[in-house]
Simulated assay, not measured.
Amino acid sequence: MLPRLGIIEDKAVDEYSESISYNQRFIDLWQISQSAIETGKDEPIFASMLDKQDNPEEFVSTLEYLFEHPEKSCRNEIYLKDGKTLERYIASVLSLTGDNYGKIFYFRDITKRKEAEAKLREQTEELEKALLQLQPTQVQLIQSEKMSSLGQLVAEIAHEINNPVNFIDANLIYAQEYFEDLLKLIKIYQNHYPDNSEAKEFIEKIEFDYLQEDLRNIVNSMKTGAERIGQIVLSLRKFSRLDEAEFKKIDIHESIDSTLMILQNSL
Rank of each mutant, 00 (worst) to 15 (best):
M1K: 13
L2I: 14
R4N: 12
D10Q: 03
V13A: 14
Y16H: 08
Y16C: 06
S21W: 13
Y22Q: 02
N23C: 09
I27Q: 10
W30E: 03
W30D: 01
D42I: 09
I45H: 04
F46E: 06
A47D: 08
A47L: 06
D51L: 04
E57K: 10
F59H: 10
F59Y: 15
L66N: 09
E71D: 11
C74S: 14
R75I: 12
Y79Q: 05
K81F: 00
D82K: 02
T85L: 05
R88F: 01
A91L: 12
T97Q: 11
N100R: 03
Y101M: 05
F107W: 11
I110L: 03
A118V: 03
R121D: 12
L132Q: 04
L134P: 01
Q135D: 13
Q140W: 02
S149P: 01
L153E: 13
V154C: 06
A155M: 08
I157F: 08
I157G: 01
A158I: 03
A158Y: 03
E160L: 07
V165S: 03
A170F: 09
I173H: 04
I173N: 07
F179Y: 13
L183A: 08
I188W: 00
I188P: 00
I188F: 11
A199F: 14
K200Q: 15
K205L: 15
K205D: 15
D209C: 01
Y210H: 07
E213P: 00
V219Y: 15
S221V: 04
G225V: 07
A226Q: 01
R228F: 06
G230T: 12
V233F: 01
L234W: 00
R237L: 07
F239E: 05
S240K: 04
R241Y: 09
L242D: 12
A245L: 11
K248Y: 06
K249E: 11
S255R: 09
L263H: 12
